[in-house]
């Protein structure tokens, strides 16, 4: 698909008419793929909840925190105490990687996708 950009802002989505797979079609998520890009509600910085308050954090701190907590829960309660929900806004490849991370690293089959909700 193509994103329409006007004066540096993403304003619309177009299907790729000569793409061998989609052949110029998109589903409703594809047609609206541009909408979240400039959303005010979009998370642009990592936040960690500290004492009940979401606080800005560095990427290093946020990723260490998530990895540490996932490892702690897995070690303490077993891998099946974890579950992962992926997103239709990720690419196929990102979803594949998350599946690998869940099964091979976290050690659970508890993975699903928001499109099945």
């Amino acid at each position: 698909m193509y994103l329409e950009v006007m004066d540096g802002k993403v304003t619309g989505t177009l299907p790729s008419m000569n793409h061998p797979i989609s052949e110029g079609s998109l589903c409703i998520k594809g047609w609206n793929a541009h909408e979240p890009v400039h959303s005010q509600k979009r998370l642009t910085k990592p936040l960690i909840r500290k004492d009940g308050v979401l606080t800005e954090a560095s990427w290093d701190e946020a990723i260490s925190n998530v990895a540490g907590e996932l490892a702690r829960i897995r070690d303490q309660y077993g891998p099946n105490s974890l579950a992962v929900l992926t997103s239709a806004k990720c690419t196929n490849e990102e979803n594949y990687l998350l599946m690998k991370l869940t099964r091979a690293v976290l050690g659970t089959n508890n993975i699903d996708h928001c499109a099945r909700l």
Binding site: Y2, L14, S16, M17, N18, H19, G24
Partner: peptide
Amino acid sequence: DISPFFMTKDNIAELEKLTAPDGRY
């Protein structure tokens, strides 16, 4: 890949890619 494009004289080099393909927009 065939796609629509808009250009002004500030990016005139883009014009080289102009085509009249099978694909339509």
